[in-house]
């Protein structure tokens, strides 16, 4: 009965190490303002202070935990690989996702650089197919590598016939 012997192997390449910093920054950008919005009024409003500080702790401590754990975890999960025939990625941390798309079905390939990402010299590669499942994203590549990857993917997909549906 054990058909349970097939597993997905992880894709070959890790993303850039600086992605850990980028994810940390992203988490802090959410956690810090939320916590500050509770702590700052607590400084001025004496009666409400215990409650505000309690709320700040309720948001800040889990937020801090996520900020510490999530980037490392993501770095272990996020991987990518491009073969001659397909793009293969894994991503996520608690909820994880593996995606495979064959070269012949790729419609567009783009790079994306958010402001925080640019701060760390990173870029994301977005691979779109005709499916409503959404694009495949390789987040946190070195900027130059991302450009090279897009170029390579574009060349390969253009060489493949068909209308990608």
């Amino acid at each position: 009965m054990s058909t349970d012997t097939l597993r997905l192997r992880p894709p070959r390449n890790r993303v850039n190490g600086k992605a850990v910093l980028w994810w940390t920054a992203n988490a802090l950008l959410v956690v810090l303002p939320l916590t500050a919005a509770l702590v700052v009024p607590a400084l001025f409003w004496e009666e409400g202070r215990p409650w505000l500080l309690l709320a700040a702790a309720a948001i800040g401590l889990p937020g801090l935990a996520v900020t510490v754990v999530m980037p490392q975890w993501r770095y272990r999960v996020h991987r990518w690989e491009i073969t001659d025939d397909a793009v293969y990625t894994s991503s996520g941390w608690l909820w994880q996702e593996w995606r495979v798309a064959p070269m012949s079905r790729i419609q567009t390939v783009d790079t994306k650089r958010g402001p925080v990402q640019r701060l760390f010299g990173l870029a994301s590669v977005t691979v779109t197919t005709a499916s409503a499942a959404g694009p495949i994203e390789i987040a946190g590549l070195d900027s130059a590598l991302a450009d090279a990857t897009v170029e390579r993917l574009t060349e390969t997909t253009q060489a493949t016939a068909g209308d990608a549906t």
Binding site: S2, D4, T5, L6, R7, T83, D85, A86, Y88
Partner: peptide
């Protein structure tokens, strides 16, 4: 499509697919 990314693990020897 998926085969290059699959590996077999565990006690699979007795059950050739």
């Amino acid at each position: 499509l998926l085969s290059p990314f699959l590996v077999r693990v565990g006690p699979s020897e007795e059950e050739p697919r």
